[in-house]
Amino acid sequence: NKFNKELGWATWEIFNLPNLNGVQVKAFIDSLRDDPSQSANLLAEAKKLNDAQA
């Protein structure tokens, strides 16, 4: 379904953000699993944090 596809894509993108540490990645992935409907918002937050830590 739509959420599974978005969840998978967001998970892959978060895993590939180079400036996040393992704890941050795990926290974002756990949040995605808790509420897949928020995948776009969580991915945006992860990208912002990644950019801030560059």
Rank of each mutant, 00 (worst) to 15 (best):
F28C: 03
L42K: 06
W12A: 08
V25H: 03
S39R: 07
A10K: 04
A54G: 11
E45W: 10
F28M: 02
L20P: 00
R33K: 10
I29N: 01
V23S: 13
S37K: 06
L7I: 13
W12P: 02
S39K: 06
V25G: 00
V23I: 13
G8D: 14
T11P: 04
E45K: 11
N19Q: 03
V25R: 14
G22S: 13
L32C: 04
D51P: 01
A44Y: 10
F3P: 09
E45C: 12
L43C: 03
F28T: 00
I14F: 05
L17Q: 02
Q53G: 04
K2A: 13
A40F: 12
Q53I: 09
L42R: 03
D30N: 11
K2E: 13
E6W: 13
L32P: 00
D51W: 10
W9N: 07
S37W: 05
G8N: 13
D35K: 08
A46W: 02
W12T: 05
I29W: 05
E13T: 09
L49I: 09
N19M: 05
K48N: 06
G8F: 15
Q38P: 01
N1Q: 10
A54F: 08
R33H: 12
D30S: 11
E13M: 14
D30K: 14
S39E: 06
N50T: 01
L32M: 12
K2W: 15
N50K: 01
N4M: 12
D30H: 08
S39D: 03
L43Q: 02
W9L: 11
A46F: 04
L20E: 00
F15W: 10
W9Y: 11
I14L: 12
D30V: 08
A46P: 00
N1H: 11
N50L: 01
V23M: 12
W9A: 11
S39I: 15
F15I: 12
E45I: 13
A40R: 12
F3I: 12
T11Y: 13
L42M: 05
N21M: 08
D34F: 11
G8R: 15
A10P: 04
E13Y: 15
L17S: 01
D51A: 13
Q38Y: 04
K48A: 11
T11W: 12
W12M: 07
L17Y: 03
L7G: 03
N21T: 14
N4P: 11
D34H: 14
V25M: 06
L32H: 01
N41W: 14
T11Q: 11
L20Q: 00
K5W: 13
N19H: 13
F15S: 09
P18W: 05
N41Q: 13
P36F: 05
P18S: 07
A27E: 08
N19S: 04
A46I: 02
F28E: 00
E6R: 05
D30L: 10
A52Q: 11
L32A: 03
A52F: 08
S37R: 07
Q53P: 02
D30M: 12
A52D: 07
F15T: 09
A27P: 00
K47H: 08
K2D: 14
Q38T: 04
L7D: 07
L49T: 03
N4K: 05
E13S: 06
Q38H: 05
N41T: 13
A40Y: 11
A54N: 09
N50Q: 02
E45H: 08
Q38A: 07
L32Y: 03
V25K: 15
E13L: 14
K5G: 13
A52T: 08
S31D: 03
D51G: 05
N4R: 06
I29R: 02
L49V: 08
I14M: 04
L32R: 00
K5P: 12
A54L: 07
F28D: 00
N4V: 08
L49H: 02
S31M: 14
Q24D: 02
D34N: 15
W12K: 06
L17D: 00
L20G: 00
N1W: 02
K47N: 04
V23D: 12
P18N: 05
S39Q: 07
N21Q: 06
A54Q: 11
K47T: 05
K48T: 05
N16R: 07
P36M: 05
S31Q: 14
W12Q: 07
A52N: 07
K47V: 07
S37P: 02
A52S: 09
L7H: 04
A44M: 10
P18D: 03
D34I: 12
L42A: 03
L42P: 00
D51L: 11
D34Q: 14
N50S: 09
E13H: 10
S31P: 01
A44R: 10
S39N: 04
F28L: 04
A54V: 07
A44S: 09
N50D: 03
R33F: 13
L7N: 05
V23Q: 13
L42F: 04
T11I: 15
K26R: 11
V23F: 14
G8A: 15
L17H: 01
P36K: 02
S39H: 11
A54Y: 08
F15R: 08
P36A: 03
L43I: 10
K5R: 07
A54P: 04
W9V: 08
L7R: 03
K2C: 15
I29P: 00
L17R: 00
R33M: 14
E6G: 07
K5I: 09
Q53Y: 07
K48L: 08
N4Y: 11
K5H: 12
A46K: 00
A52W: 08
G22L: 13
A40T: 08
E45D: 11
A46V: 02
V23K: 12
E13N: 05
A10G: 04
P36L: 04
L49M: 08
P18K: 09
D35S: 06
L7E: 07
D35H: 09
Q38F: 10
K26Y: 11
K26H: 07
L7A: 08
E13Q: 13
I29M: 08
W12N: 06
A44D: 08
L42D: 00
E13W: 15
V25S: 04
D35Y: 08
V25C: 07
W9C: 13
S31Y: 09
I14W: 03
T11V: 15
I14Q: 03
A10H: 06
S37E: 06
P36D: 02
N50Y: 02
A10I: 15
L17E: 00
Q24M: 03
P36W: 06
G22I: 12
A40W: 12
D51N: 08
E45A: 14
P36N: 02
P18H: 07
F28I: 04
A52L: 13
S37G: 08
I14H: 01
N41M: 13
T11E: 12
A46L: 03
D34A: 15
G8T: 13
N41Y: 14
I14P: 01
D35T: 06
A40S: 08
L17G: 00
R33S: 05
L49E: 01
N4E: 14
F3A: 12
S31G: 07
P36Y: 04
A10C: 12
P18C: 14
D34S: 12
A46H: 01
D34E: 14
Q53R: 04
L7Q: 05
G22C: 15
G8Y: 15
K5A: 12
F28Q: 00
P36V: 04
D35E: 05
A44T: 07
N50I: 02
A10S: 04
L20T: 00
E45M: 14
P18R: 07
R33I: 13
A54R: 07
R33N: 12
N41F: 14
E13G: 03
E13K: 13
Q24G: 01
W9K: 10
N1F: 04
A46D: 00
N19Y: 14
K47E: 03
Q38E: 08
A44G: 04
D35V: 04
K47C: 06
N16D: 03
G8W: 15
N50H: 02
N16T: 08
I14K: 02
I14V: 05
